[in-house]
Design a protein around this nucleic acid. Structure first.
Lengths: 250, 250
DNA sequence: GTGGATTTGTTCGTATGTATT
DNA sequence: TAATACATACGAACAAATCCA
């Protein structure tokens, strides 16, 4: 005796309904960054729930980076502009609990950076080219100063390339994965004995990459960027993971 | 009168301290998936905070996908195995609030899928090759059945390739970005008049890719996979975004 | 700058429905 | 079935932070 096909009911928490509604309002553009949510007391009236429930919803929204609330602020929680912080958080968690290896992370950086260079070689503006020039000049100047300054200039170069790719997803993922990788190895690099030689070699490689980008040769820029990153990080990647990295060098 | 350089104090919420401690316990491996947190009442004793504060912390941990709590469960919140759900959520949010275009998303899929194929061509096992064969057979069988079945088989193929790349980050990002793209266009594809022709063409392309992977020709597999995806999605990408896609076809 | 009003952060107590034993 | 322990949700209260007149 088959009656009407009923669907399983998942009881959804009160706070979750609030999260959904506010999320929808923000993602649809009804609420823009800088605008304010009603106060907690107003929200408990509008949703007809208790204050605790409102607060649990706000904590979730805050964890997702959509709003921020400060004690005593009479204007209510502020809608935040999108930031990759939440993305960064979950990817960092992934790296730790799922034991993402340095090899996998560097491999992913090679993929992203090569693609960014490939696209940048065809889509870059002269202004972006100038930014890359400036970044390499910064790297050169920073060799004497120290690793932190060098790393900052290096980041500026890769950021300029990522922007020139005109793909926001590549930009953001580049940023997130890079900071995770640097968190794992920057200490070791800073302490390396041959640090200065590594820097000089890296600069030379970056100049080759930039020349290819300037010439509009995407495939060459991509290949050189992979090689550059490979050479730079190889020493910190466990031996048994190196073949996988080499597989990207074709 | 410059005194000692004091640093600004950021008052950190009580619930945030709880989140940090539990997060650290989970990410360090002290708490493993399947294990249970103490009950809310025990937690309020251990952290010497109120029930509401404990609950706000649990909501945040739940939003990050680290734990899950059910009403009435006498064992307390359960530590969850990592799932890309949180990653998926934040990337979907990014796509909506930052107005990620379909072109950018498809471009990113092309980058990921090409890299996965490049690596798979060199690292795949015979078993994974068989999985890809089976997936393509499934696609062929599904042409008569309908778009949903076809899409499922298509996903199975790309998943097999991603797994064969042996890079978890590529696997997860592939999964996340694909589901976002499909959410945007699957309705249009299912309703397309020339749907069946598209499917048959897609199958032929997938067979070429697989042949390259089987032959161990990574660069060829990568190039063909880019072309396959380009052809499949081109019709749904706005005209002004198409040049950026073509830039990946070298 | 001061004070008062308002808001968030946090606590406590209570009631209710649910899952386990 | 009953007992127990749990999560969910509510409401009142106080302290600390913020804003505005």
């Amino acid at each position: 005796m088959s009656g009407p096909r009923f669907e399983p009911v998942r009881t959804v928490r009160a706070y979750e309904r609030i999260v959904e509604q506010v999320e929808e309002a923000i993602e649809s553009g009804a609420l823009c960054p800088g605008e304010r949510l009603p106060s907690e007391r107003d929200l408990m009236v509008q949703f007809s729930v208790s204050r605790s429930t409102v607060r649990e919803a706000l904590r979730v929204l805050q964890a997702r980076g959509l709003v921020r609330s400060r004690p005593g602020d009479p204007h209510g929680a502020e809608v935040q502009p999108f930031s990759p912080a939440a993305l960064h958080k979950s990817m960092t968690t992934l790296a730790r609990v799922d034991e993402l290896s340095l090899g996998e992370l560097v491999q992913f950086r090679m993929v992203l950076d090569a693609s960014a260079n490939l696209l940048a070689a065809r889509l870059r503006t002269d202004e972006q080219l100038a930014e890359m020039d400036a970044a390499i000049a910064g790297m050169r100047a920073a060799v004497e100063v120290g690793y932190d300054a060098f790393s900052a200039a290096d980041i500026a170069f890769h950021d300029a390339v990522a922007r020139a790719s005109r793909n926001k997803l590549i930009q953001i993922c580049t940023d997130v994965v890079r900071s995770i990788v640097l968190g794992l190895v920057s200490g070791k690099i800073a302490a390396a004995a041959d640090r200065e030689a590594l820097m000089r070699q890296s600069i030379a490689h970056h100049e080759e990459v930039l020349a290819a980008v300037r010439a509009g040769d995407g495939p060459l820029a991509a290949r050189l960027s992979r090689q550059t990153m490979y050479d730079y990080y190889l020493g910190y990647v466990p031996v048994d993971e190196r073949p996988a990295l080499r597989a990207l060098l074709e």
